[in-house]
Design a protein around this nucleic acid. Structure first.
Length: 442
DNA sequence: CTCACAATACCCTGTAAGCT
DNA sequence: AGCTTACAGGGTATTGTGAG
């Protein structure tokens, strides 16, 4: 709504009869009533959720990963507080990024004590003009994530220091900037915002690769989280992700670990065994290939059906897949070219981890063997969308009505296909009927 | 067809608190 | 005590769009 007011103030015409504006206004009003009611509630609330209230539209909009595209939170204003920025620390991420974080004078904001907060990157720190020693405004974004909003410049004493990442990680003995974990060289690729540790074998990265592999979205090995993966790595029980599946040969050493009794060890080993036949998409995600997240991993699994097939795919082959461009393709190729990675995959296979998946047989799909032909304009679908959904369920689409055509789908202003279908006695569906069919079978 | 820009999808990171 | 979860907001990559 504010955006629209802003546009109006710039002289743009906004049609006051536009239904959408009414809808937005309605949401805004509803939100305001809750902002007022908030304090009187006998429970905690952090905002309202606006939802599309038609199941059909919800289905069309779908999800991105776990998040629905048909519902969005509209949060109450965040609670803020101020405190002192004592220092800026650096942590090393799974991909080798050097991540600056704020070390704060502990402060209570919205009922919890905040000591640290992410600062993202050097450019962002500069943009916000955050300096070490500053009094800074802190808020909990979405009532949860601590965030440094910016400095209170009126409180400056002149002793505040600008933050320079390369100075922070400067190693006097080596006389150059160095990774705070392994001491390797640090670089910032042209045009990028993050600095990286150049050492792929950096313990920080190795440990977090293990953590990522075991994580819920990937192989989902319950029991192996940040702490255990670090311990197992430090003790040398696990050097890379494949070693996880050979832990069972080292039971005695596991039992010697602190806080690991017989039950913990057997729970962990059970969880490891269970993870051996996760869907292929999970395995691809778990490998930790750069730029391959949940969605792309899933896509690659559908496309290749086995890790070997993916490993052998050419750049062109990869790029021909929708949503995969040169960067992602190169990232995949580079990963499988690495000798160490090939070795890991070999050992994963030997230990019994499932690395392929039967392609879903087209014959097994609900619309298998049916051919659909579309004519006229559809209301709620684009034609391409409709065709995709039919194909996703195993149906075929044709461009002209023949004796093999199962259904003719008729939108508004149908063409001559309708006449032909009538003369052939082909079954005719209108849009609503098609949608029902798709929803029923899906 | 190419280029530039906008929109969208995807990926990554970190904190506190609830859960086991 | 450790693991998991909820969550925001940063960046990068890809796709879509319109003009020439």
């Amino acid at each position: 709504w504010e955006t629209l007011e802003y546009l109006k103030s710039l002289g743009f015409k906004v049609n006051p009869n536009n239904r959408r504006l009414d809808d937005i206004k309605q949401v805004e009003d509803y939100y305001q009533t809750w902002v007022e009611k908030r304090e009187k509630l006998h429970y905690e609330a952090d905002g309202i959720v606006v939802k599309v209230n038609q199941l059909e539209l919800q289905q069309r909009l779908g999800d991105i990963g776990r998040e629905p595209r048909w519902a969005i939170a509209y949060k109450f204003p965040a609670v803020q507080g101020t405190t002192r920025l004592i220092d800026i620390g650096i942590s090393v991420g799974r991909t080798g990024t050097l991540n600056p974080y704020a070390i704060l004078e502990p402060v209570s904001v919205g009922g919890v004590t905040i000591r640290q907060a992410a600062l993202h990157n050097e450019d962002d720190i500069r943009r916000k003009d955050i300096r070490i020693g500053d009094t800074v405004i802190i808020q909990r974004a979405g009532e949860v994530i601590p965030a440094v909003v910016g400095p209170v410049t009126s409180q400056r004493t002149g002793k505040e220091k600008e933050f320079k990442l390369l100075e922070k990680v400067f190693d006097k003995e080596k006389n150059r900037p160095a990774c705070p974990v392994c001491g390797s060289e640090v670089s910032r690729p042209e045009g990028e915002v993050m600095y990286y540790c150049s050492n792929a074998a950096c313990p920080a990265q190795a440990q977090q690769r293990i953590e990522h592999f075991a994580s819920r979205g990937a192989m989902d090995i319950r029991g192996i989280g940040e702490n255990l993966s670090a311990t197992l790595y430090e003790k040398g029980l696990i050097k890379d992700i494949a070693d996880i599946y050979y832990l069972k040969d080292h039971k005695e050493q596991l039992l010697e670990l602190e806080k690991m009794g017989g039950k913990s060890v057997s729970n962990m080993l059970d969880a490891i065994e269970k993870s051996k036949d996760r869907p292929l998409g999970r395995v691809i995600l778990a490998l930790g290939i750069r730029h391959i997240g949940e969605e792309t991993a899933e896509l690659l699994a559908r496309e290749f059906h086995s890790l070997d097939a993916l490993a052998e795919a050419s750049r062109e082959e990869l790029m021909s897949i929708e949503t995969i461009g040169p960067k992602i393709a190169d990232s995949i190729i580079a990963f499988f070219r690495q000798e160490t990675n090939r070795d890991i995959i070999k050992r994963l296979r030997e230990s019994g981890v499932k690395l392929e998946e039967k392609p879903v047989k087209a014959e097994a799909l609900p619309l298998a063997g049916m051919e659909f032909v579309l004519t006229g304009t559809l209301e709620a679908f684009s034609r391409k969308e409709a065709e995709e959904r039919i194909k996703a369920l195993g149906g075929a689409t044709g461009s002209s009505v023949t004796r093999k055509t199962t259904y003719l789908v008729v939108g508004t202003d149908p063409g001559s296909k309708l006449d032909r279908a009538r003369s052939l006695g082909t079954e005719i569906l209108n849009e609503a009927e098609l949608r029902n069919l798709l929803n029923r079978k899906a």
